[in-house]
Design a protein around this nucleic acid. Structure first.
Lengths: 347, 347
DNA sequence: TTGTAGGCGTTATCAT
DNA sequence: ATGATAACGCCTACAA
């Protein structure tokens, strides 16, 4: 009827949705009255009627459950930014929630009720729940091939190829043969894929590849430091220490410094992720860049696409990684301004 | 009626909301059927009927508009995490959206329709829009005293006291008198408050305080580097360079290194924020810690509180900051394990 | 171009 | 403890 102006709710609705079917005059009138009244359409009512909330959910893991220091993998921040960008560009919004320990299932249900689809970052949820959720609404898993088993779409990164390119570089450009690997959590898909890439590179060069990582660093700075300390207690330093991510590499660098071992002169060190910290740490960290923002953006787009076409074949997108050569592997610094990137990995 | 079990929608509703008024038997039955069907209540319908979406919105600025490199203040990530934690703890969820340039108003409206209340980070929105929004739903501004003018709640940080404590330290503990200030964007409230803190400390020590900052670094690493380069082109290095945030301090460190000036021997350098990078950079950065997560958490709680009691007096919360003394100011490193913190600033 | 009216899936109020 | 039944505020044919 009259939202204050003299038109029907239908007309107001048409105007507010940018649809067609009204005169410019009517539109101006409606818009003006709305502005005067500070009136905003109700998202809930709109969502109910159109069965589309205009919201995509993003679930990510919060490890170190509980305390104020609870922490998620650092790359999650970038994923969130990428997701936000893609969603906003599509006129949607993103809802975020961190699953903490066993409360994950309840949280997932609560979030599910508010969104049209879900992006689930690796290790946020047990696989069984993924499959269940996937039957109710579009679900895209990130950095986790569990999607395949749960039969939902997935967007991942070429961990194997990235790590392989990195280790190839250490072997070919620097001639290292004695290369130690510090892994992340045993059950992390990212970690095991990266280790596989390391094994492949070693074997391809005719070197012995261990069946298991030399140490476990849990993807944290402290964990990496602990792993490095243990490694070096046993034996003389290897030629290179390859870490499963940047945070562990940073912890390793600290330990080496305190042991008066110079990097890269005495030992080379590498990471994975290319966090901002990789450029701040000394020496600058040679690592593998993941397109973290793009990961988030693509996952959101995949959700939106699935909403449009529920029958499309399952998506299994693998994004390439980039080898980023800096000083910690033993390379000389590039000239100022040179990017220091190379070796884009195929998807 | 029968959602598959044999009870009315009313009963299902009661069970799903954890309310009372049903037998344990009925509850189990409803829950079981729901699980079997994979049924989840509709958030939209629920929101419409109860006029409560269970969602809090978070608006933050995305500067460097446009390109894939668009970037927000780094502390925003932490604010988001804190907001998520507080919201989840309260059974709500948080919706995030970055305002990019002039599209801010539309985005704000779109988000407003989907949420019960809004947290608005400084510089996301023109002040006029803040006031307008504030009339429609609870709005809490973050890091910006604009809240006062717009008559909405605000949560800020004691920028003045934090910077003052830092500069006091430089003057008293190190005896510096020639202290240069690199500021952020001219219209940033954070920046001008920090400059004011610097001025206060200088005057209190009987030193000359400039009316304007010696240089402007726009809160970015590149901007800080540029500012440092300009400063040092003119004159011999000052005893200390105080930067308005950590990112500019990091840029400044790079420039000093490339000019073969040692920090802190030749020049002391300090930051503000205590980003993770402050501990990675060499030398470790003396800075002022802001409780960024807490900032986000409190803002969300303020929104929720306002929802409960619309008539409560306006909230103007100022959180204390912590002086974090590391090596870049000239202090010797603390013993391992010592926190290196001191000087909590009053609110 | 505009209005009318049924329906979206809950919650909340009354009954029973 | 449970059921029936109006709202809730919008969208979407359908009609004019």
């Amino acid at each position: 009827m009259a939202r204050g102006s003299g038109v029907s709710t239908a007309t107001v609705s048409r105007v507010m949705r940018d649809g067609a079917g009204f005169s410019a005059q009517t539109r101006d009138r409606v818009l003006q009255v709305a502005a005067e009244l500070g009136w905003i359409p109700s998202g809930s009512a709109r969502g109910l009627a159109s069965r589309r909330a205009g919201i995509v959910g993003l679930l990510f893991p919060d490890l170190g459950v509980g305390g104020p220091d609870s922490e998620s993998p650092l790359y999650v921040d970038q994923v969130i930014r990428g997701a936000e960008q893609a969603a906003t560009a599509a006129g949607d919004a993103v809802l975020i929630a961190a699953t903490r320990g066993s409360s994950g299932r309840d949280l997932a249900l609560s979030v599910s009720s508010k969104v049209d689809g879900l992006v689930v970052v690796a290790r946020s949820l047990p696989q069984a729940d993924l499959a269940t959720l996937g039957r109710r609404l579009p679900v895209v898993v990130l950095s986790d091939r569990a999607g395949r088993l749960a039969e939902v779409d997935s967007v991942t990164v070429d961990n194997v190829g990235g790590m392989r390119a990195l280790v190839d570089h250490l072997i070919e450009a620097h001639g290292y043969r004695d290369i130690t690997f510090i892994a992340g959590p045993p059950r992390s898909p990212d970690s095991s894929q990266r280790f596989a890439g390391y094994q492949q590179a070693m074997r391809a060069a005719g070197l012995d590849a261990p069946k298991l990582p030399h140490a476990i660093g849990h993807f944290t700075e402290a964990g990496g430091a602990r792993a490095a300390r243990e490694l070096l207690a046993d034996r003389r330093p290897p030629e290179a220490i390859v870490c499963g991510n940047d945070q562990m590499a940073i912890g390793t660098l600290d330990v080496l410094t305190s042991l008066r071992l110079r990097v890269p002169r005495h030992v080379a060190v590498t990471g994975f992720d290319d966090l901002a910290a990789a450029r701040h740490v000394r020496p600058h960290l040679t690592t593998v860049a993941q397109p973290m923002r793009d990961l988030g953006a693509r996952a959101v787009r995949a959700v939106l696409a699935r909403l449009d076409d529920p029958t499309a074949p399952r998506l299994e997108s693998v994004l390439p990684t980039d080898l980023v050569v800096r000083r910690s592997c033993g390379c000389r610094p590039a000239r100022r301004g040179a990017a220091g990137r190379s070796g884009r990995t195929a998807g």
